[in-house]
Design a protein around this nucleic acid. Structure first.
Lengths: 195, 195
DNA sequence: GCAAACATTGCACACTATGCAAAGAGGCAA
DNA sequence: TTGCCTCTTTGCATAGTGTGCAATGTTTGC
């Protein structure tokens, strides 16, 4: 687990730049601030900023946490009802996200006002959907249903974060419970022969 | 239904620019072409290009067709099963999309390689989701379930287009049927107490 | 026809993003 | 510790993006 000084510095600089970006963006909006300002706030040159990130938006978003391999495996091999196993998976992942709440909130506000940032996030989400779809497909044996489930799950996460951001006093975990209930209800409505 | 000469010219110029953008992008990639090239191909000045669109990506995507008010109303007031009424809604909308198949295919390839374009499309899709959610909420009386359904529907459209783009010989309508079946199957799996 | 409204264009300018080369700092072996 | 190699930072040059402004044309309605 030895990490070289160089590596540690790189991580630190990347994080410094992300924090500087998010703080300045929260204050003045990502659109109005310049890469020069961000670099100055992070204590590096403009050129160095671009050595770390290709643009402001990427700097603001950073690298979202990936799904844990063990959680994916549990979902693949789970023996409970599919809904129950997915809920467990979601709880695990939301726990990871909850570890970075302040940054998550800042990123949320950037996403609401910046098209390019949304596109970059969409790229990450698309990767997550593919990972989930493949995982679920081994369980349900139907690629189209697996893709639909994967989308539902990613969407549930997204809406849970959104609810948490906008509802004071609601924890991320609690927000997920609320949104999840809606997801299940929607499934029942769609699956019902008539209602 | 009188449209002034000015208005017609504006529409025409906007379309000229979009077509020029998509054709050049198909040939060389949206990243590598410049706004100057696009403007020249569309027969306007660079400055005029920016009077119509704020960037290349917006020019490529143009304005996706909105849901028809009558279709939304039919969905709101439908008396069949929810799934059946949603399928009718989807069929109607896919029919509109099928009217612009060549452009749809070009846009698809742009979206696959361009982050900013994806973000812009996401913005449009988010608007569609809100419209659908509100519509469905009046029918099912549960905002969270309505939001989940709206996401499912938008996602179904997106995946149907994707399948159609990648599967030769499959019509848009047929692709929608395949994807829709997967969506329904996913709902049954999620709604089932155990499977 | 004339004036107001709108469209097009050129020009200037701030900002974004990349390539290249020089200088600085860390890693590693003798 | 020294010296060499590698990686990092930086400045500079340059192509491209996007906006404000003002001049010049076009369309519209009166």
């Amino acid at each position: 687990m030895t990490v070289s000084l160089r590596e540690r510095r790189r991580q630190q600089t990347a994080r410094d730049i992300q924090i500087a970006t998010l703080e300045l963006a929260a204050e003045k909006g990502l659109e109005t601030i310049t890469t020069e300002e961000i670099a100055a706030a992070a204590g590096v040159s403009t050129r160095t900023f671009f050595n770390y990130f290709t643009n402001k938006e990427t700097a603001a978003i950073g690298a979202p946490p990936a799904f844990k391999e063990e959680d994916l495996q549990a979902l693949r091999e789970g023996t409970g009802s599919l809904a129950a196993d997915i809920k467990i998976f979601l709880d695990k992942h939301i726990e990871v996200l909850a570890g970075d709440e302040p940054i998550l909130k800042l990123i949320g506000s950037v996403l609401r006002s910046n098209e390019k940032a949304r596109g970059i996030l969409e790229g990450f989400l698309a990767m997550g959907r593919i990972e989930l779809r493949d995982c679920l497909n081994t369980r349900v044996g139907n690629p189209y249903a697996a893709a639909a489930l994967a989308s539902s799950i990613m969407d549930t996460i997204g809406r849970a974060i959104y609810l948490w951001e906008h509802e004071d006093g609601l924890s991320l975990v609690a927000a997920l419970d609320v949104i999840w209930e809606g997801t299940i209800r929607a499934s029942q409505l769609l699956a019902a022969p008539s209602e």
